[in-house]
């Protein structure tokens, strides 16, 4: 557990650096969490992060990578709905990195 502060807003992260309380999230905190992963965020990264947040709002879970890949393909097109594209954006895995930046808990069934 650690307390962090970004632009005057304090929030808690767990021992792996995931946001403790999803409702604390804002884009500044997302950018900060990306920094802790040494990952500069592009528009393409934000597209995935925002997709994950929408998915979580609808279903209350972080999707497994396979499910995320399929759902992204459906919404953003097949050129983005494949694991190569997602791993290029998030080298340590969309589950580990994109979920963390989106402020979500680690996906259930994440391998």
């Amino acid at each position: 557990m650690a307390m962090c502060e970004v632009n005057g807003k304090t929030f808690e992260t767990d021992e792996e650096g995931y946001l403790a309380n999803i409702t604390d999230w804002n884009e500044d905190i997302g950018a900060y969490l990306a920094q802790t992963e040494n990952l500069p965020l592009t528009e393409q990264h934000w597209e995935v992060v925002n997709f994950l947040r929408e998915y979580y709002n609808e279903f209350q879970i972080a999707p497994a990578v396979r499910v995320l890949t399929k759902a992204i393909g459906k919404k953003l097109g097949p050129e983005k709905g494949n694991s190569q594209y997602l791993y290029e954006l998030f080298p340590y895995g969309p589950a580990k990195q994109a979920c963390k930046i989106a402020g979500l808990p680690k996906p259930t069934g994440c391998i």
Partner: peptide, 10 residues
Amino acid sequence: SPTYRALDGY
């Protein structure tokens, strides 16, 4: 309960 609606995607 919303998670049951995600099962289809799984």
